[in-house]
Computed example of a mutant assay.
Amino acid sequence: MPPALNIIALATFSASLSARALDPVLPHVAEEFSVSIATAASFAAVFAFTFAIIQPVLGALADMFGKARLMIVCLVLLGFAHILGSLSTSFGMLFASRILAGIGAGGVFPVALSLTSDLVGPDKRQVAIGRTLAGAMAGNILGASAAGLIGDFLGWRGVLAVLGGLVVLSSVAVAAGFRGAALTRPPRTSLAQLRKGYRTIFSNPNARICYGAVFIEGCCVLGLFPFIAAFLFELGETSLSVAGIVIAGFAVGGLFYTMTVSRFLPRIGVNGMMIGGATLVGVQLIAVAMGPEWRLQTLSLIFMGWGFYMIHGSLQVFASELSAEARASALSLHAFFFFMGQTVGPIAYGFGIQHAGKVPTLLGAAAVMIALGLVCARLLRQTPPADAAAK
């Protein structure tokens, strides 16, 4: 694997540090600003929504002006957004900082996947993307667990201040690393080529399935996370550190995926990864619905993360092959639909929990995920992009 993948993994690690930073401390945010947990959970929704809607723009900018440069600028923006959030004097100001954070994060991970896809051929791409995901998973683990620990000692403001400073420092390290990296630099794309690339993307029948599937994933899986701390509070477990550990379990499962994908993929194939992963997610959603104590919930989140990335990693590979000339745009659209799902998810979960109850809502999400794996395995077909010859 190219050494540049290590630099790309560092970039995803830096951005992922703060991805779930507020989830463990949402009860304290809600208390300080005198809002409900459901209202505080809107931070997750606005972050995801901003991340999503900016994707078509950032994907085009990355293809036109350079992927690595855009990634570094967005890391700096993300760090300063969190520092600004730590200084918030009102709910509105904190809300605005989450919008800026969504823009910053939006220019890191999808572009990192595109750089990875530029460096590695399709036959080795899922394993290479697994290494990129390892950086993101490590960041999620440290971000979620550290957020709970820091929150117990310094409050939610301390969480944002510390993580914001770390992201800014990481952006400097990533910039230095990219300067010395021997990256393959494909020709930058013009507006005319971008239009042609979008036509290529949406002419591929895999596009509708990939983008629809990741929307459902984001809704059913990531939409759950803002409510995990509240579920634990209902069980009498009010420690923010414990909430951070439980949420970090999902990222631990993602790391297990990155360590096992090279073994499982040749044995069960892409279809087996999608069916097995979606089924594992569904079973763990059922387990969480039963309300076990926090240690068992942590174990469930580990298996959920493992299963989630089995199907999600497969979908990322399909998305990377929708277009060769506009790969950053294709993967940014992939992220757009994924984070739109994360935007709808907390709202849908909140509505379902309020009107139907926790257990029926989670059981419904479990059924949807299991069905999703079967549908994707049946309909997705591995075909080279129509513009592959031009690459």
Rank of each mutant, 00 (worst) to 15 (best):
E321F: 03
S14F: 01
F336E: 00
L70F: 14
P385K: 12
W294V: 03
S34G: 13
L70Y: 12
I72K: 11
L119I: 02
M310W: 11
S171Q: 07
L10H: 14
F225Q: 02
I141D: 00
G253R: 13
F215M: 14
A348Y: 04
L22I: 10
L22C: 07
R179E: 05
F308I: 03
D123W: 08
G253P: 11
S145V: 14
A101L: 07
A181S: 15
G277L: 02
L235M: 15
V73I: 15
G249I: 07
A176G: 09
A243V: 06
V359H: 02
F250W: 07
D152I: 13
S320N: 06
Y198K: 05
S86R: 01
G373K: 14
G364M: 11
A367R: 10
L58T: 04
L255D: 01
I347Y: 10
F339Y: 15
N6I: 05
N204R: 06
A105R: 00
I37W: 04
L70T: 10
G350A: 11
V73F: 13
A52I: 01
T238C: 09
F225I: 14
A335M: 03
V242K: 07
F233S: 15
T279I: 15
F227Q: 06
R263K: 14
L331W: 00
Q382A: 14
S320H: 06
L113D: 00
V375P: 07
P110Q: 03
Q297A: 14
V120H: 03
G85L: 02
W294I: 03
L235D: 13
L235K: 15
G253F: 11
A21R: 00
R188F: 09
A330P: 03
A278S: 15
M274D: 03
L142A: 12
G130Y: 05
R179A: 06
L285R: 01
R98Q: 12
A371S: 12
E321W: 05
V162A: 13
C219V: 04
L301H: 08
R195M: 09
I103G: 01
G102Q: 03
S314A: 15
M290I: 14
F303P: 01
G254C: 12
V167Y: 08
I228K: 03
L22K: 02
V261H: 05
M273G: 11
A9N: 09
S320I: 01
F153I: 13
L299V: 15
V111E: 02
F109H: 04
L379E: 12
V288E: 06
